[in-house]
Computed example of a mutant assay.
Amino acid sequence: MRVHKLTLAAVAVAASFSLTACQNGEDGAGQSDPSSSSSPSSASSAPAASPSGGSDQGGGKASGATGSGGKGTTAGTGSSGSGKTEKCRTDELTITAVDATIGGDTDGTVAVTLKNRGGRNCSLSAYAGADLKTASGPLSAKRTGEQAGPSVLKAGKSVSFGINYPLNTSGGSGVRITGLVVTPPDETKSVTLAWPGAATLPVTEGGGSPVKVGPIGSAGQGG
């Protein structure tokens, strides 16, 4: 009878060990399932971030290049407009002429003055045009050939140039001068003035003009 009880007890213990082993196996499987399911989840989220970041940044760089190009154009436009002074216009100048002949000279001199009466500074290049009106027709003055670069004439300031011509010492009537036409440098509009010098030029034979004009500033500069 005691032997039978011991056998039943052994069977009960074996059954208990078997049940515990089964439970442990199920718990292990349950713990491994979540880790295996989280691995695919993180892998699937990685590809989604990569494409969106790459394409947005690329578009931002292209936009930045366009912007810097626009700044360059503005600066260029700005640098082509500043740094240069516009030329003096005839309508901005008061032009006068006076006799500047010095006693004892063999040639007569007329000084022509250009005053900037505009509200801005302007530039004058080397030579103005000077034409004498005579009884025999117009006579253009030739340049003396002196070198002179462009200069800036400030608002309210004046600059002068000289016209040299031969004095009529022949005793004859000569060629009568009736007026002076002045054209500022780089302009087409002229101003006609009364001639302040000697009344006549000597009669010359052959071609060429005996009248010469100096560059801007050749007769001194006024205030």
Rank of each mutant, 00 (worst) to 15 (best):
G156N: 06
K157W: 09
A141L: 04
Y127F: 12
K154S: 12
N121A: 15
S140M: 09
A128Y: 06
Q147S: 05
G137P: 02
R143P: 08
A130E: 11
R117Q: 15
S125D: 14
Q147T: 05
A155F: 06
L124I: 09
S125K: 11
L124G: 08
K157A: 12
C122T: 10
Y127W: 10
A155D: 05
P150I: 00
A148C: 03
A155L: 07
L124S: 10
G119F: 13
R120T: 15
G145Y: 00
A141V: 04
K142L: 14
A155V: 07
N116S: 13
L132P: 02
S151I: 08
E146F: 07
S136T: 11
A155Y: 05
K154W: 04
Q147D: 05
A126Q: 09
S136L: 11
Q147I: 06
P150K: 03
G156W: 03
K154A: 14
G156C: 07
L124T: 08
C122M: 09
T134Q: 02
A141Y: 00
S136A: 12
A135L: 05
A155C: 07
C122K: 06
L139E: 04
R117Y: 13
A135M: 06
A155E: 04
Y127H: 07
S151F: 00
N121D: 15
T134L: 03
D131S: 12
K142T: 13
A135V: 08
Y127R: 07
T144V: 06
S158C: 08
K157L: 13
A126C: 08
K115E: 15
G119W: 12
G149T: 01
G119I: 13
G145I: 00
G137S: 00
G137A: 00
Y127C: 06
V152A: 04
N116G: 12
R120H: 15
R120L: 13
A126N: 10
A128K: 05
A141H: 02
G119T: 15
K133D: 15
A141R: 02
L153D: 00
K157G: 09
S136M: 09
S151L: 08
P150Y: 00
G149Y: 03
S140L: 09
P150L: 00
G156E: 02
P138K: 08
S151M: 10
A135P: 01
A155Q: 11
E146I: 05
